[in-house]
């Protein structure tokens, strides 16, 4: 009987290690496929090169990095005011009942497929952008708005949880000293919930950086370093998805190399989020 129990424990340990194994496998395969071209072109040439024309053997992904960065910043600019005010309102001002209904509703919306968001961008947002700002529609602005909306539920939900985790006594203490509710929020609650909210934002950033299908549908996908927010751009993810179907040889390796850059970026974001969350807990 003891023998059997030990066997089960070992089996479960192996199961638990599977996630680590998968992570390693992914890293291994992507590196194996993509590293040769990075070494060939040079890290600097690959990351800072602004010329991407696989047929001629030019592999610089700088425009895609810039595209990703701009779209992500734009998405944050769209998302933060909305998600934070939503979180603060629902956590601090609304009644418990309203919060109990709206929070799950907002979380449910995290489940809308990204292709649907992309589609909404095409049919609803493009005409609006054309009318009010000019251009053809697919551009940084459109992509930023749609991605901003996509990451709304993630950030809002985590921010509400962090605000709710602040002990009730903090609020009572501050209010009893004559602070208004807004002063209490600004000086007591937000600082206390800061680390949780920040890690939520970083998760949102991760989601925006990693989004593929919606971005392909609305960002325009031109390999240029954008001059304005109405220029079409291509993100790292779009670069992979668009060319993977027909890429061979060095070209295919370059796409995997794009994946490496993306992979590293996401792992770094996760480490940051993790560190912030842990520091919050320790405090």
């Amino acid at each position: 009987m003891k023998y059997r129990e030990n066997l089960i424990q070992i089996g479960l340990l192996l199961t638990a290690l599977s996630t680590i194994a998968i992570l390693f496998l992914i890293a291994l395969f992507i590196l194996h496929e993509g590293l040769p071209i990075i070494l060939k072109v040079g890290i600097k040439g690959f990351i800072c090169g602004s010329h991407w024309s696989p047929q001629q053997g030019h592999f610089g992904i700088f425009p895609m990095i810039i595209g990703t960065v701009w779209i992500t910043i734009g998405a944050l600019l769209v998302s933060l005011p909305l998600s934070l005010s939503c979180a603060i309102y629902l956590s601090e001002f609304s009644t418990t009942k309203v919060r109990a209904v709206l929070k799950p509703v907002i979380e449910l919306l995290a489940g809308i497929p990204s292709v649907v968001y992309g589609f909404i961008g095409m049919v609803v947002l493009f005409p609006m952008v054309r009318n009010y700002f000019g251009g053809t529609g697919p551009c940084i602005l459109s992509a930023a708005i749609i991605l901003g909306i996509m990451i709304l539920p993630t950030i809002t939900s985590i921010a509400i949880d962090s605000l709710q985790a602040v002990p009730y006594s903090f609020r009572e203490g501050s209010l009893s000293l004559g602070a208004t509710r807004w002063q209490t929020i600004r000086m007591v609650i937000l600082p206390a919930a800061k680390s949780g909210i920040l890690s939520g934002i970083i998760l949102g950033v991760g989601r925006a950086v990693g989004e593929t299908m919606a971005v392909i549908m609305i960002a325009g996908n031109s390999v240029i370093i954008p001059g304005s927010f109405l220029d079409p751009v291509r993100t790292l993810t779009a670069n992979i998805a668009l060319e993977m179907n027909y890429a061979t040889g060095d070209h295919r390796q370059a796409l995997f190399a794009t994946g490496i850059v993306l992979f590293i970026a996401i792992i770094i974001l996760n480490i940051i989020a993790n560190t912030i969350a842990r520091r919050g807990v320790e405090k």
Partner: peptide, 23 residues
């Protein structure tokens, strides 16, 4: 293990796509 799980949760789908394609 938890960190691995979180990383796995954060990896963009396109990377999973690439990985699944090669493997």
């Amino acid at each position: 293990i938890r960190f691995g799980t979180e990383c796995l949760a954060g990896i963009p789908s396109i990377i999973f796509g690439l990985f699944g394609f090669v493997l």
